[in-house]
Write a protein that binds this DNA or RNA. Structure first.
Lengths: 126, 126
DNA sequence: ATTATTAATGCAACTTAGTTGCAAAAATAT
DNA sequence: ATATTTTTGCAACTAAGTTGCATTAATAAT
């Protein structure tokens, strides 16, 4: 069920993620691709690629959805504690290749941890 | 500017937060209060209370906005690294009274950190 | 290579969270 | 009691994301 076919649209999205070093918001992708494909298609392809493990998603500071293809995406075991960084000036969002340690909690089972850091990126610091 | 008046609606919302130990989603508040006040009013009161420092907000796992009144809200200096926990079974969201250590990053200025943990709460573990 | 099967797409209509402008009502100040 | 300023309700709107269904494109089977 739900085999991911290598359609033209899928290839287009894949190459966008390959080419981009940072995360991409769904809103931006839909806007950027609106002449080439329907927004529903964008949403559905992103869902499938995430299900496949090719990309991963997270929620930005304003509640909008972002996707990224990072090095840990290629591993089978998905690392849940890799943080994301959002620049308050240029709006760029990136995956950070560091690990954040989540303390163990008694009485609760933690299944995943989303860490979103906000601040100024290298480019915007000056 | 933007003095917070103690209107009936404000008092209602304040007492809801006092009575509740956990965080409250805006959607739930609007639904719960829809006979007593307009949804626009709910949104605006929450904004004002947050500006005042009485409550704080964050984004849940599905991108929706949540508000909570926690112990650290009463302090003037707002602690940016207090995590939130969302139960995947019952949907309850709570502030955790622990501190998560965010590693220093070279080349980036971190201004705030949002940590959202997802899993099973004490009640849903059995 | 053609045909059959199944997945993917486009489209339009819809749902839902959140916002805006403005007139009316309620708090606070005078 | 009146004037001032904030707050509220309402209706209309925006924008993100979803759904159903008919059509089209990929892959599998012959």
């Amino acid at each position: 069920m739900s085999v991911v076919r290598k359609t033209k649209s899928v290839k287009t999205l894949m190459s966008i993620f390959e080419a981009s070093g940072s995360a991409l918001s769904v809103v931006d992708l839909v806007e950027q691709l609106k002449v080439q494909m329907n927004k529903t298609t964008v949403y559905r392809i992103l869902e499938r690629l995430e299900g496949e493990g090719t990309i991963h998603s997270f929620i930005g500071s304003n509640g909008l959805k972002w996707y990224a293809k990072c090095s840990t995406c290629t591993k089978h075991e998905h690392d849940d504690v890799h943080p994301h960084f959002e620049c308050r000036d240029c709006g760029k969002v990136e995956c950070l290749e560091i690990e954040v340690t989540i303390p163990k909690l008694k009485n609760r089972l933690i299944e995943s941890a989303d860490v979103l850091l906000t601040g100024q990126c290298a480019d915007c610091l000056n």
